[in-house]
Simulated scan of single mutants.
Amino acid sequence: MFRRERSIPLRGSAAALCNNLSVLQLPARNLTHFGVVHGPSAQLLSAAPEGVPLAQRQLHAKEGAGVSPPLVTQMYESDGSVMVYWHALDAGDASLVQAAFARGIAASGHYVCVGTWSGQVLVFDIPTKGPNIVLSEELARHQTPISDIATEPAQGQDCMADTVTADDSGLLCVWRSGPKFKLLTQIPGFGVPCSSVQLWQGTIAAGYGNGQVRLYEASTGTVHVQIDAHARAICALDLAPEVGKLLSAAEDTFVHIWKLSRSPEDGYIEVEHCHGECVPDTQLCGARFCDPSGSSFAVTGYDVAEILRFSSI
């Protein structure tokens, strides 16, 4: 069971975008960073464990070298204090009525993958020290805009999939990261956008616009489980890696928590529903666990000027 805790106020509400909440826990400093997109800016907040906001910063897209802000991918230090790199997105193939944007971002080792409206995934090589970030590769397997990207450590196994990219057609591409990313398999869509995706122990959790959550074997694309989880489009998924908890949030105002485990007999994924939480009259647009054990989570909603927090009883 979970109970609602003290909310964290925002200067503006979260934009109505899927996966519109990021959480970075810093146990050594007893802090949690939150990130929310609002219009053309990003709001970064740091808070103490009890939810007391300590600092808040707004990052606005900065113009550079004659490039307009919507066509720039920018990278900052975790607290938003310093912009360490910017990259101009090539909008040459975009029509006058087509929006040009970056959507979906995830880190795999020292690589950062960024999805784009064209279906390309930009892979940036991030050095251990210094700001010498370079664009190392462009992955071009998707034909529609990227919707989300997920990664997990490969744990030294050469054959293990550690990156999955999703798009608006529902197509999933499964990769092994490295100096050259290798495509391992493709999981076709079924006419519904895949809005959010996660990886856990070689299992892909994908949330769709029809409210379904599907669990796939990453190496083969085999469907393990299909859950009719929500009545409306899913806006966010998250995983607590230490315990295998899956969080799903949707436009139906509900957040659900599921427990994933592997059957010892055949290795298939088993799912148990653990908790459901309704946020009345709220179009949810982001949800994340606040710790790797899944004992707390936070959600954002469109036109709601606060981050709602919940913790286990």
Rank of each mutant, 00 (worst) to 15 (best):
155 Q>G: 14
225 V>R: 05
160 M>K: 13
145 P>N: 06
216 Y>P: 02
192 V>G: 15
193 P>L: 06
128 T>N: 12
196 S>R: 00
126 I>S: 00
171 L>Y: 09
153 P>A: 07
94 A>L: 07
114 V>H: 01
227 I>K: 01
170 G>I: 02
124 F>P: 00
171 L>N: 09
93 D>M: 11
107 A>Q: 10
149 I>D: 01
96 L>P: 11
186 Q>E: 14
142 H>K: 08
87 H>R: 03
92 G>E: 13
99 A>T: 04
206 A>N: 12
148 D>E: 08
186 Q>S: 09
175 W>I: 12
135 L>I: 03
150 A>L: 10
128 T>A: 12
150 A>M: 07
174 V>R: 01
163 T>R: 07
201 Q>Y: 12
88 A>T: 08
140 A>N: 11
220 T>G: 03
164 V>T: 10
208 Y>G: 01
97 V>Q: 12
162 D>I: 07
220 T>D: 06
195 S>G: 03
115 G>C: 11
222 T>S: 15
134 V>N: 08
197 V>H: 00
219 S>F: 02
199 L>W: 08
155 Q>H: 14
179 P>R: 14
161 A>L: 03
110 H>R: 14
172 L>W: 07
94 A>R: 15
219 S>H: 07
172 L>V: 13
124 F>G: 03
214 R>N: 15
199 L>V: 01
139 L>P: 05
108 S>R: 06
185 T>C: 02
172 L>M: 01
119 G>M: 11
130 G>P: 00
142 H>Q: 03
194 C>F: 03
116 T>F: 05
85 Y>D: 10
145 P>C: 12
134 V>L: 02
123 V>K: 05
90 D>S: 03
152 E>Q: 05
195 S>H: 07
215 L>S: 01
205 A>D: 02
172 L>E: 03
143 Q>M: 13
110 H>N: 08
149 I>P: 01
209 G>H: 00
